[in-house]
Design a binder for these strands. Structure first.
Length: 582
RNA sequence: GCGCCCGUAGCUCAGUUGGAUAGAGCAUCAGAUUCCUAAUCUGGGGGCCACAGGUUCGAAUCCUGUCGGGCGCACCA
């Protein structure tokens, strides 16, 4: 972990200091707000290494025009020996070119920090709980779960890189009616395993073949004790048994994707500990919960069996929801929401911030849970920041035709199938090369076919090439060395500039909670490296290993090895392997 | 009807939170391997950033409206 600000942050501070000096000189009024001032690498590298909009943003307050103010700023900046040139361009941008020394120092910094290069102390020690996947424990993981799983996992890693202390959590919904269905389905398979002919799986049971081994395991565990017993004797036992087995399946599916949660929280355990009761009592006391009658559903025709019933309702309308929401059902059991708000309270006890990753099909419930967390956490001291990241649906296709993914039909593409077919790295990278809030199509056949063209290989190839050149150098007895980095040329340093953006990208991506930015950054870095590599095809002087020039070769090998380090760090963040050969 | 998300090249998508001439990949056309891995590189063609207003030095990005697509609108989970 580096305590040093990133290179870009360091220059932002310099510019801030210049603005402070201008205030002292009276060019700018005292206490001019500088929030809009940005210091960034320009889009077009030909504009220089850094650009700032300071003059344009502050001109009005300085009662002058942008270019005139820019001249004053430039005057100060030119005194800095690390700034080779400061030029005014366009409407008042100030473009800076930095001394080569800045970049060679950055190469050394990568070498020194190694695997920690790119990590930031931005949010040092802040505890954040990221809840993701949380698929119902009624079957194996399928592709519908995949996107949220990968995005959540990469986000967790990203926040770790930004200094957060991250808890990766999975909420096990083991208390609802679906689990009864699961238990009955397993009981059926259990009877089958004991030799009974169960025929077609009837309506209302999960038909998937993945329950066959669970039934067999149950037969082994219980013998024929529950074969003809009435349901109330075995239901609870089979629930627990089935959920445990399903969670084992889910955990091993997740492991195939390289995902390992720290905490699995059980809804049943939460209810057994009376957490929802405690939350309800507090909410009633503060008038967030009252007994009332729900309005009939609007818009579409109300369900035929609709009848008004008095239920305990949470006042989510106070927080912008359309309707107050029941926390208990008429049979006295907790609704999903009722238990979920207690669950979020439990999470908030050990975290400074909560993030949930949900599928877009749950978008309608975001307002109520946010409302509940706001009400509860505010009442109990510090309000805990809470964000729900919605991951849009993946439209599953088979050869262009929409494929159903329901567990009921038992016909779905599982994550295990997918990983076996194309590998973990392709699956993860595919999910991370688009922003999560846009829908995506996922055609199993197409992805399998196109997996060779997946951008993940492009990035891995760059890394493999670097490993290859280092092996070759080793065989020739040339050792990479950072002793004479001043030998590096303009082309070499251009590559460094690209690599030097990694820490900045990590911080920006973490701030925006957008892990996909790292995937795109790595692609760009790989592209820069491939282009750099090919320079050597036209001009032997531009190769990494230059014949008859051991010292330049040593410096370039050192550089290449640090580029490899950055690619490795980025891929590690995304949970993708950095292979040494392709 | 209401809420949330999306609309950028023929296709799949980026776009540094409001910056300079809107970028990649695929596809297409033309080139580069006696030479560190050609799973690579260089160049060409291809755009009303869905549409219309507004905000300001400056808009693909922010606001309003319209159109189009997706998801949701139980005491389910």
């Amino acid at each position: 972990m580096s305590d040093k600000p990133t290179l870009y942050a360091a220059f932002a501070q310099k510019i801030d200091a210049v603005l402070a000096a201008l205030e002292a000189e009276g060019v700018l009024p005292a206490d001019t707000p500088r929030g809009n001032v940005s210091v960034e690498p320009p889009r077009d590298a030909s504009h220089g290494d850094l650009a700032t909009n300071a003059a344009m943003v502050l001109a009005k307050q300085a009662k002058t025009n942008p270019r005139a103010l820019a001249e004053k700023i430039v005057e100060h900046l030119q005194r800095d020996p690390l700034i080779v040139s400061a030029e005014i361009a366009g409407p008042g941008f100030i473009n800076l070119k930095l001394a080569p020394q800045i970049w060679t120092e950055e190469v050394a910094a990568i070498a020194e920090l190694g695997d920690d290069y790119g990590k930031s102390a931005m949010d040092e020690g802040r505890r954040v709980n990221v809840e993701y996947v949380s698929a119902n424990p009624t079957g194996p993981m399928h592709m519908g779960h995949c996107r949220g799983a990968v995005v959540g996992d990469a986000l967790a890693s990203l926040l770790e890189h930004a200094g957060h202390q991250v808890t990766r959590e999975y909420y096990v919904n083991d208390a609802g009616g679906q689990v009864d269905t699961l238990a009955r389905s397993v009981h059926l398979r259990y009877r089958e395993a004991l030799g009974e002919d169960i025929g077609e799986i009837p309506e209302g049971f999960y038909p998937g073949a993945y329950l066959v081994p669970v039934g067999e395991a149950a037969a082994k565990e219980f013998g024929d004790r529950f074969r003809t017993a009435p349901e109330d004797e075995w239901l609870a036992i089979f629930r627990a048994f089935a959920v445990e087995r399903m969670m084992d399946v889910i955990k091993s599916d997740l492991a195939l994707l390289g995902i390992n949660h720290d905490v699995f929280s059980s809804e049943a355990a939460l209810q057994a500990a009376k957490k929802p009761e405690a939350a309800e009592a507090w909410l009633r006391e503060h008038d967030f919960v009252y007994d009332g009658v729900l309005e009939a559903p609007k818009g579409k025709a109300p369900p035929e069996d609709w009848e008004p019933v008095e239920l305990p309702l949470f006042r989510s309308t106070k927080f912008g929801d359309d309707q107050d929401r029941p926390i208990k059902k008429s049979d006295g059991k907790w609704t999903y929401f009722g238990a979920d708000l207690a669950y979020h309270m439990q999470k908030a006890e050990n975290a400074d911030e909560l993030i949930d990753i949900w599928g877009a099909d749950h978008a309608g419930t975001v307002k109520r849970i946010k409302a509940a967390v706001a009400a509860l956490s505010e009442g109990q001291g510090e309000p805990v920041p809470f964000d729900v990241k919605l991951v849009q649906m993946v439209q599953l296709l088979r050869d262009g035709e929409p494929a159903k993914m329901s567990k009921r039909s038992g016909n779905f593409v599982t994550i295990a199938d997918m990983v076996e077919e194309v590998g973990k790295d392709v699956v993860r990278f595919s999910m991370l090369t688009r922003k999560p809030e846009a829908q995506m199509d996922f055609d199993f056949a197409k992805v399998v076919e196109a997996s060779k063209d997946n951008p993940v290989f492009y990035v891995q190839y760059a890394h493999a090439r670097i490993c290859s050149i280092l092996r070759k150098a080793d065989a020739e007895g040339i050792t990479p060395s950072g002793e004479q980095l001043d030998l590096l040329t303009e082309d070499d340093l251009a590559l460094v500039k690209q690599a030097a953006q990694f820490p900045r990208e990590v911080e920006a991506a973490a701030r925006a909670r957008e892990p996909h930015r790292i995937a795109f950054y790595l692609y760009d870095l790989a592209a820069a490296f491939h282009a750099f590599w090919n320079l050597g095809n036209d001009d032997a002087e531009k190769r990494i290993i230059v014949a008859q020039n051991a010292r330049l070769s040593a410096a370039r090998l050192f550089l290449a090895s640090q580029i490899g380090q950055v690619i490795r760090n980025g891929l590690a963040l995304l949970g993708v392997e950095a292979v040494e050969e392709l």
